[in-house]
Computed example of a mutant assay.
Amino acid sequence: MKLGVFTVLFSQMPLEEMLDYVKAAGLDAVEIGTGNYPGNAHCNPDELLEDESKLRAFKKAISDRGLIISGLSCHGNPLTPEKTFAQQSHDTFVKTVLLAEKLEVPVVNCFSGTPGAYEGAKMPSWPVAPWPNEYREILEWQWKEKLIPYWREWGKFAEEHNVKIALELHGGFLVHTPATLLKLREAVGEVIGANLDPSHLWWQGIDPVAAVKILGKAGAIHHFHAKDTYIDPDNVNMYGLTDMQSYANMQERAWIFRTVGYGHDLKTWADILSALRMVGYDYVVSIEHEDALLSVEEGFQKAVENLKQVLPKEQLTDMWWV
């Protein structure tokens, strides 16, 4: 496996300074934002698609440092009823796929999206209960009329450009569990897979090792994010796991994001990484930092230190003892 980082946390650094910093930390890969929620501080698709010399210089800056791009990330919501952001999300996704093809990057990371509750709605709606029955009816309409048609069309587009789509299983979006990922994959095809992030599984009550086994058996893990979650049992009893308080309200929240090793111990992370290798995922483990209790630099360095202790790096050899 290779160790990488989602470089949005270094958005204040120019591209080459960021790459030098990542290389000095001993990493192998970068995951780069191309717009929408992650921003495009290090990679403007319009510029790189329009100017071949800038594209070559971009590729060279990365390859000269012995790094690879694990994925291009454009998390947005192409299904939202808010038309301006929906169009921006879609356009950025299309450009990101075209750029990934040119850069020979195999994966584009994004969200599935969430539409409104009905045609003409003003805001997205995320149903999370099967009763009263109208919630289930809304969900069925969203999948049938919005989610599946969109990804059937644009999944085929990605496939034609030799790019896989890795959907992050993130609450607030229709694809947020192994079951919803596999349901969409069945309707669309193998181009759809997961950008598996344990932090979003833990707060939903899903065991990441079990999720790896479920999705790995289907060959449905396209990318992996390394981020942790701390769950506060007392606050869960007060607010539940669907706590809607601001992430800034750390003392009261039921759960908060942490850097690797600060929500769950390294044995747990070793089990996750071992499960990934067991199901045949030997690609990049990409650090994502959203830990409000540690600075960007310290959170990143702690994640690197902790993951290096448990990340399998070498190629597997024959079992000499068998």
Score class of each variant (00 low, 15 high):
183 K>T: 15
198 P>Y: 11
300 F>V: 06
142 Q>P: 10
218 A>Y: 02
63 S>W: 11
75 H>P: 04
91 D>S: 06
13 M>D: 10
159 E>F: 08
255 W>S: 00
133 N>S: 09
292 A>T: 07
129 A>Q: 08
282 D>H: 09
16 E>M: 08
145 E>N: 10
26 G>K: 13
32 I>G: 00
138 I>C: 01
45 P>L: 01
200 H>D: 08
53 S>A: 06
169 L>M: 14
223 H>A: 12
296 V>C: 11
251 Q>A: 11
106 P>I: 01
148 I>M: 03
236 V>C: 03
219 G>D: 07
227 K>G: 01
154 W>K: 10
10 F>G: 03
234 D>A: 06
265 D>R: 10
134 E>K: 07
71 G>T: 00
276 L>K: 12
127 P>F: 00
118 Y>G: 00
213 K>Y: 07
61 A>V: 00
63 S>Q: 12
221 I>M: 06
91 D>E: 14
252 E>Q: 03
172 G>Y: 10
231 I>H: 03
98 L>N: 09
159 E>I: 00
197 D>F: 13
121 A>G: 07
112 S>N: 01
295 S>D: 14
297 E>V: 15
316 L>G: 11
216 G>F: 02
210 A>I: 14
243 D>F: 06
264 H>N: 08
1 M>G: 06
261 G>M: 04
134 E>A: 04
101 E>M: 08
109 N>L: 08
87 Q>A: 15
301 Q>S: 12
57 A>E: 12
14 P>V: 04
138 I>R: 04
284 V>F: 03
169 L>R: 07
73 S>A: 13
162 N>C: 09
43 C>Y: 01
28 D>R: 07
225 H>F: 10
252 E>H: 01
224 F>S: 05
270 A>Q: 12
109 N>P: 01
100 A>R: 02
96 T>L: 04
71 G>I: 00
151 W>Q: 09
302 K>S: 02
292 A>I: 02
284 V>Y: 02
163 V>C: 06
203 W>C: 14
123 M>K: 04
274 S>I: 09
190 E>I: 08
137 E>F: 00
27 L>N: 03
165 I>Q: 03
171 G>Y: 12
23 K>W: 06
239 Y>A: 06
45 P>Q: 05
263 G>S: 08
136 R>G: 13
43 C>N: 03
